[in-house]
Amino acid sequence: MADLQQLHDAILAGNMNAAIAVTKEAVEAGAQPGDLVNGYMIKAMEDIGAKFEAGQAYVPNLLMAARAMKGALDVLKPMMQGSGVTSMGKIVIATVKGDLHDIGKNLVASMLEGCGFEVINLGVDQSDQKIVDAVNQHHPDILALSALLTTTMGNMKVVIDALTAAGLRDSVKIMVGGAPISEAFAKEIGADGYSANANEAVALAKSLV
């Protein structure tokens, strides 16, 4: 059996090839996906998040860790059906209408996926109707909205109003983020939570489901 601490360390270091290799070795030796995911992989993502919060890691480190996590998860996916490993929750994520910025959103999506959420990424410049349709179709636990521009952040409220009008507002928690967004703005528009960065977004999502 591989030294499973190496799986944790490979993800923490953002070393995808090592993470995949250790995962394969562990699987061949009979390790259970749930033990790998819950015992080592999610812990590594939590640890890189903590380093980020402490200023000891940067956005590229988060991304490399998320990439390594995804590589390892891809090895496990065929075995995870019926293995008892369940998603932490379903999240629909989108950048609002009028805004083409997607790097921050994608970083949040990758971190959420890395930490065990099922993420449906709608993309950028998404109208309120498209987002309402996606909530209607996917029934997510959380809707995550992103905006980078002060000129587009107002469209978050348009989405929330559209969800209310469609009778869907109470069926989904809404979290918002993006550089111009603040806690006060989130409250003002009726969102359920705000996060300042990808790491906080994971913690917020966990608290909302």
């Binding site: 590229p60 790097i103 990758s110």
Partner: peptide, 11 residues
């Protein structure tokens, strides 16, 4: 599909 490259390419 490499999120690290996509991020760097965007910047």
């Amino acid at each position: 599909g490499d999120i690290v490259k996509v991020y760097a390419a965007d910047l």
